[in-house]
């Protein structure tokens, strides 16, 4: 049951990725690949979170996985890897943390007693830093295959194999 609940999330991760793919006007033949990549990346993150790994590291792992798979997809579908990887990682963007950080900042500017201040500042900074580090780990994770292979084009990676 637990596993099923997690797998269900995969569907939603995929759909969110697909929506952004449409928004970015990706070629039609790549749509289902984006759905699959989004689901796989999201599930990687969710499973790692379930295993007690921090959200930043889990996002990084999910994004790296998407990055590696997008190279494969690029060969199969003849499109640059970013067409697959960018829509696929967007469901992992830390929207909730960013929202809580913003709410926190807004509350901090309002009237606030000194007892609440520490607690609120602590939460706001925590959420803000999580947002920042998750965003960074997503961007770096996606470009991991390019950095690791030191090639300028995905096409070359294929030729060397």
């Amino acid at each position: 049951m637990e596993i099923l609940a997690l797998l269900e999330k995969g569907i939603w991760f995929g759909l969110a990725a697909l929506g952004f793919g449409i928004l970015f006007n990706v070629p039609r033949r790549t749509l289902w690949v984006i759905w699959v990549l989004g689901a796989i990346g999201g599930l990687t993150k969710v499973f790692l979170l379930e295993g007690g790994i921090g959200v930043v590291l889990a996002s990084f792992a999910g994004a790296s996985f998407i990055g590696v798979l997008s190279i494969q997809a690029a060969h199969g579908k003849h499109a640059p890897p970013l067409v697959f990887s960018i829509p696929a990682v967007i469901p992992m963007v830390p929207g909730a943390f960013a929202y809580r950080m913003m709410l926190g900042f807004m509350n901090l500017t309002g009237d606030i007693t000194s007892e609440n201040y520490n607690e609120l500042l602590h939460q706001t900074v925590n959420n803000g830093l999580k947002t920042l580090f998750i965003l960074m780990s997503l961007a770096v994770g996606v470009s991991i295959p390019m950095l690791a292979t030191r090639k300028e084009s995905a096409k070359v990676i294929k030729l060397k194999k």
Binding site: K9, G19, F20, G42, P91
Partner: peptide, 15 residues
């Protein structure tokens, strides 16, 4: 575009 992006929004909400 409108329908699928809205669906993506709903998916976010579910997640």
């Amino acid at each position: 575009v409108l329908l699928l992006v809205s669906l993506a929004g709903a998916s976010f909400c579910r997640l």
